[in-house]
């Protein structure tokens, strides 16, 4: 099988890579580009640990081929903080102790950011359904929901 050349933008930077035709975007990010913030929890799109955005749309990167990223804009957890300034969601997750082991955290943060971009003033129920594609086994989601609601409020004030 011959490799495919891909030109894409990841977290604002132009990136070139070659990948196999059957390689997922998640594998490309993790194994070829060293962006291991996206995690593989299931490889079937059920857990959301590999969440990224493609052209602003929330996606499981395990369900997309690396070749499909050509000409698109990819956003990953590594691009969420601006320099040394954490995104309000990242800050609120720490303040609310909204993570225990932290393996789902990158995916949940990417999903929560996407949720707040589409709905800056979500109700608790909207947050719960907005994050229903991201599994967390440690927290029971209570502190995650509180952190997202708190971050949303702060972002609205800003």
């Amino acid at each position: 099988m011959s490799a495919i050349h891909v030109t894409t933008k990841i977290n604002g930077d132009v990136v070139d890579y070659v990948c196999e035709a059957d390689e997922t975007l998640l594998d490309v990010l993790r194994n070829r580009l060293g962006l291991t913030g996206a995690k593989e929890g299931c490889s079937t799109g059920d857990c959301g640990a590999c969440s990224v955005t493609i052209d602003g749309r929330l996606t499981c990167s395990c369900l997309v081929l690396g070749a499909e990223a050509d000409g698109r804009e990819i956003g990953t957890i590594e691009g969420m903080a601006k320099g040394d300034e954490l995104h309000p969601l990242q800050r609120k997750f720490l303040e609310h102790a909204a993570l225990q082991c932290g393996i789902c955290t990158p995916g949940i943060l990417v999903a929560a950011k996407s949720l707040l971009e589409h709905n800056p003033k979500p109700t608790e129920t909207e947050v719960r359904f907005g994050l229903a594609g991201n599994l967390c086994r440690c927290t029971g989601y209570d502190k995650i929901v509180r952190a997202v609601m708190d971050a949303a409020q702060e972002m609205r004030r800003a």
């Binding site: 291991t36 957890i77 903080a81 954490l86 990242q90 720490l94 932290g102």
Partner: peptide, 18 residues
């Protein structure tokens, strides 16, 4: 705040497969 917090919210923390 937990000492490993920043790594965990920025994707820098190294887990088993990383």
């Amino acid at each position: 705040l937990r000492p490993d917090g920043i790594d965990k919210v920025t994707g820098r923390a190294k887990f088993g497969a990383d």
